[in-house]
Design a protein around this nucleic acid. Structure first.
Lengths: 340, 340
DNA sequence: CTGTTAGCGCATTCAT
DNA sequence: ATGAATGCGCTAACAG
């Protein structure tokens, strides 16, 4: 591609060179109507020779389509969201659309501005990952543009929502510990956190409880401690727990951050992992395999979610009802758990 | 913002409502010429009442500016590049421009396609982070559109390039180990890696060597081992090193990944960190503070680089010569080093 | 099947 | 200072 040349080649230049009208050029380029074979060839040749690149603004102005998909994410740099992003990028590469990113940074006003901007730029579809926008607001948006909300359960928008089976993930993790012979299993849950995360955390707690109940064990409240998803709160949780004097042989934390905090607290008390206590987290953060010992955890299928989001948007653009699969989690077994 | 309403409000609607011509509306909105105070007010009021949002395609088509800045990155999900990205986003928020991202994935063909696409979308400026595009190619691009190449030293483009003082970072890290009483310091360097990274790695090695030479110590080739930047190669490096039988008390790895590999290898051999051997990495990857013990490493100022890139692009858009600072690294001291 | 004619919404002349 | 006219490059409706 010669950058200098193609700059101002327009559709009429092609038309002239190929001895056809501009409309015909447009037709062969968009495949919007049948054109005689000979003219097709002529047009293609002219396009090639003149290094023609359609002006996207003119195209969008005339067609009303921007050929872009807006993506609102939260905090670039989080592995889960970045994974979703990658999935979106990958899937979008196979389409004619281009992503328009915006970072909501988990701040409602920032997110609202981002939404505003993306709408201004006339995105043809919108993918919102997590975030704080109210469901009512999202409903409004959904009436206006094809919308997919990923990594967030939005009851008001059952047909626009893509999420992960947190309940099952937690259930399986707990069940795994039980299968490894553990009976007294601690759960570190969380409260006083943002409303989006709270739902996930709640589902995880329910999964933990259900696993116990399904074999007829009772849920001992002394085995449940609350953090706030931050690492430091995992430390505190363990200290609180040890203060209770209730014996236990395994810990299942609602996220890896708190699992790591727990790991630190145990280390300071001289309690070994996994010899004395087994440990399981949730999320499979980047650092999980780097912990000592490497952390057993639950992976959420981030890339798949991103790809599914794009697929769904494409279906909506074709006025079809989108597929909205639920996503299974995967237990990643590493050395932080041992048989009891 | 009422999503339903503003959809088709055009500049003529505003003109009608304010009893002026479309040109006048355009003038007050762009501030491109003086307009009577009274009409200004009237226009602004109409804009407000009708929730007018200019159509960006028409604007771009007429003005020739897209008000976008293209950003080519490599592998979403790497902490260093993500940091730069965040910096770019943050800085861009204060401007009228919007970012257009593309992921080159460290694959030349993918990157070339991304470049192609961004140019097609008529970005007003371009930031390339790392990547494999040849310098010649970048030169071509630079003639065509304001360009900044970040996190990569490109001799052919001294006026478009933003990079980090790898030499100094490595020098300081090595010096730190020396100050802690270490004399026999291993360096894990790398070879057979991509041409962009090779330069950084080389600078780091030079920094290590210079630190030794500056106090009159000789560089012992038996203390230098080569990996390929991957974690596993750190393991092999240590095993090779131990095979040589040359004693040492500290290790400085050219990146955190190899440092972690080294950590594993030492662990398997029963060599303690930092009691027996001190360890320093480079990059301050996400997992560095989560290692056991937490890893002393060298942080590159990612966000600052991103912000500087945007600043530079804005200056170029104003036809000014851009500021192109060199970036200092920062030694992050954690528990993996002890006095010898 | 294909050329002609109108816009798409805005910025920018050019007159006044 | 301001309105009218023109054009940006393309798509789509309309004839033929």
């Amino acid at each position: 591609m010669n950058l200098e040349v193609n700059e101002k080649v327009t559709i009429t230049d092609i038309a002239d060179k190929a001895n056809v009208s501009a409309s015909t050029v447009s037709r062969v380029l968009r495949g919007s109507a049948k054109v005689a074979e000979a003219k097709q060839q002529a047009v293609m040749r002219a396009v090639e020779e003149l290094q023609y690149r359609p002006n996207i603004f003119a195209k969008s102005l005339a067609s009303g389509q921007s050929m872009t998909i807006g993506v609102i994410t939260q905090n670039f740099g989080s592995p889960f969201y970045d994974g979703i992003l990658q999935g979106i990028l990958l899937a979008l590469e196979k389409t004619e659309y281009w992503p328009l990113f915006a970072d909501g940074r988990w701040q409602p006003d920032v997110e609202e501005r981002a939404l505003y901007q993306l709408l201004d730029r006339r995105v043809d579809g919108l993918i919102v990952i997590g975030g704080q926008l109210s469901e009512e607001r999202l409903q409004e948006v959904a009436r206006y543009v094809p919308l997919i909300v990923a990594a967030r359960n939005t009851p008001l928008l059952p047909n626009n929502c893509l999420y992960v089976k947190n309940f099952e993930g937690a259930y399986n993790a707990t069940r795994y510990l039980m299968d490894m012979g553990h009976r007294d299993i601690v759960h570190i849950t969380a409260s006083h956190i943002n409303p989006v995360a709270i739902d996930d955390v709640h589902q995880r707690r329910r999964g933990y409880e259900q696993a116990l109940m399904d074999v007829g064990w009772e849920v001992d409240p002394r085995l449940i401690v609350e953090g706030n998803l931050q690492q430091q709160s995992g430390v505190l949780a363990i200290e609180m727990l040890l203060g209770r004097g209730r014996p236990f042989s395994a810990i299942f934390a609602a996220n890896d951050q708190m699992a790591f905090g727990a790991r630190l607290a145990l280390y300071r008390r001289g309690i070994r992992v996994p010899e004395d206590v087994s440990l399981v987290g949730f999320d499979d953060e980047t650092f999980a395999p780097y912990m000592v010992p490497p952390l057993t955890t639950v992976r959420q299928p981030d890339m798949e979610i991103g790809q599914a989001a794009v697929t769904a948007i494409m279906q909506m653009l074709e006025k079809k009802t989108p597929d909205l699969p639920l996503f299974e989690t995967e237990l990643i077994v590493r050395e932080s758990v041992t048989r009891h």
